[in-house]
Write a protein that binds this DNA or RNA. Structure first.
Lengths: 141, 141
DNA sequence: AGCGATTACTTTCAAAGTAGAAGCAAAATA
DNA sequence: TATTTTGCTTCTACTTTGAAAGTAATCGCT
């Protein structure tokens, strides 16, 4: 895994970390679809290869956007959860979704969790984050 | 140039187009630093290779995020300008900058055009877009 | 008009990254 | 105990990237 950053610019540094085709898709699946396990991620619409999925999960864990743990009642599955650093990507993801929905309509028809909520961006972000936090609570306790 | 999209999700489709390490750096340079020519882009802090720069400009032009033209008084330089579709990436870029500034402080020390403007995100976006529009007007007329 | 410098690329090629398939060990289930 | 599930790793082919060098058109100077 490469860990070098091209410059001291926060934009290019963020792109060094997340600027690939898969990292934010994984975060999307966690934040909007509540996915938590390797298997769930590997079944995304986009069809991520398991090797790439493994390397991306490792990178996100290394940079503390997600945590990996096992639940006491299940020693087989790993549970991946977003940290605050990861949940704080919600505004960025929402902006990506808005721009994509506006400018790539030929390819995008439905993104279920965001439907009918376009009026108020700030409350949409809040709702996504609150929803994730309740999933998080439900999972770890 | 690949033109295929993995799914009908606006997030993954946007990442198919812009999810690489360079496209948004070029948009940043146009939007925040007013860069307009191949030479100016090739002199970014991050040191983009000319081959990659050429391919990214072509892609951005193909998808109509930027336009390429020559000014009557200079047949040598190409002038690249953002379209509305490109300027509308301002909110996304601002979110990337905010997240990076918050979570990668060890690498990011200054991004000049955004300094001291963190209080009000919406007006920052507006200011960036208005500023770009005035650069645009100044250039083409 | 001639000449070197500048600009905007293109080409080349090795290195790195990606994608798909198969393999495998540990844990859970039958 | 045998089979399935889960979470990977490994393998191989293919694609993309990055650094350097090359090229053609235009410009600026004399």
């Amino acid at each position: 895994m490469k860990k070098s950053f091209r410059s001291s610019c926060p934009i290019s540094s963020t792109l060094d970390l997340l600027g690939d085709k898969w990292s934010l898709v994984i975060v999307r699946d966690m934040l909007l679809f509540g996915k938590q396990t390797f298997k769930e991620f590997s079944q995304s619409q986009e069809g991520i290869a398991t090797g790439i999925l493994a390397s991306r999960l490792k990178k996100l864990e290394t940079f503390r956007l997600i945590t990996k743990r096992k639940l006491p009642e299940n020693q087989k599955e790993n549970i991946y959860l977003l940290t605050k650093k990861g949940v704080d990507l919600a505004p960025l993801i929402v902006e990506v979704a808005y721009w994509g929905d506006k400018y790539m309509p030929e390819y995008n028809l439905e993104l279920l969790p965001l439907k009918g909520l376009k009026a108020d961006k700030a409350s949409l972000i809040k709702q996504i984050q609150n929803n994730y936090n309740s999933i998080f609570e439900k999972t770890i306790r």
